[in-house]
């Protein structure tokens, strides 16, 4: 799996510097919505990696190499977890610096829940990509964009309303429930992706 992750990181780094820069820019802006979007946007990187794989017919090469179906599938999940977690950590650290200077509270819990939602989005949509391929699963891409934008809007609204009624930025049940839900959905999603990918043979 290390080789597959390395390949994806090379591809993303070599071909998507502009998009990675977007995550950096969104992380720099002291706005809850922009920071949440940066973390959620990172969930889309596995789809970019999959699209590059498809364009270069990498699956044919991978089939000739000692990679199991499990490794091929899980590497894309792990890539999504790493990029989302990386965006969360990066955004949080930047905001700690920027907001301490501006004397504003840092939305750590908001960004943490965003990361969990990123993981859930990956788990909901990846099986469709593995079943039909990125090219054919265009409708799923629309679903991903809707989920990313919808989740970013919903989370910032929850944060704003929660503060307005005198509570914390993000309600406690959401902070506890989001990671549990993300883990459960991923545990269901991975075997499904493996099954659907095998069907393509």
């Amino acid at each position: 799996m290390k080789a597959l992750l390395k390949k994806d990181f090379y591809v993303l780094w070599n071909s998507m510097k502009a998009l990675l820069l977007l995550i950096v820019i969104f992380s720099l802006i002291p706005s809850g919505f922009q920071n949440v979007f940066a973390v959620l946007y990172a969930a889309m990187l596995p789809y970019s990696a999959l699209a590059y794989d498809e364009r270069s017919h990498w699956d044919q090469m991978a089939a000739a190499m000692p990679y199991s179906t499990r490794d091929i599938i899980r590497s894309k999940y792990v890539l999504g977890w790493i990029t989302s977690a990386g965006a969360f950590l990066f955004s949080t650290m930047i905001q700690l610096v920027v907001r301490s200077y501006l004397k504003m509270p840092t939305p750590v819990s908001l960004l943490f829940v965003s990361m969990c939602i990123s993981w859930a989005i990956i788990a909901i949509t990846l099986p469709f990509m593995f079943r039909w391929g990125v090219e054919k699963a265009r409708l799923t891409m629309v679903l991903i964009i809707a989920l990313v934008c919808g989740a970013a809007g919903a989370l910032t609204s929850i944060a704003t309303m929660s503060v307005a009624i005198g509570g914390d930025k993000i309600p406690c049940p959401l902070i506890v429930g989001a990671p549990v839900a993300a883990i459960v959905i991923n545990l269901i999603s991975m075997p499904l992706s493996e099954k659907w990918y095998e069907r393509r043979k």
């Binding site: 290390k2 080789a3 390395k6 390949k7 090379y10 591809v11 070599n14 071909s15 590059y52 794989d53 364009r55 270069s56 017919h57 990498w58 699956d59 044919q60 090469m61 000739a64 190499m65 000692p66 990679y67």
Partner: peptide
């Protein structure tokens, strides 16, 4: 098994050096 397909289906944006690094973790 060493395989050479009808085209080298490697990602377009990587280099021969990076291919070597990936394969070192593959085989």
């Amino acid at each position: 098994i060493g395989v050479v397909l009808d085209d080298a289906w490697l990602p377009e944006t990587i280099t021969a050096k990076q291919v070597g690094s990936i394969m070192a973790d593959t085989y």
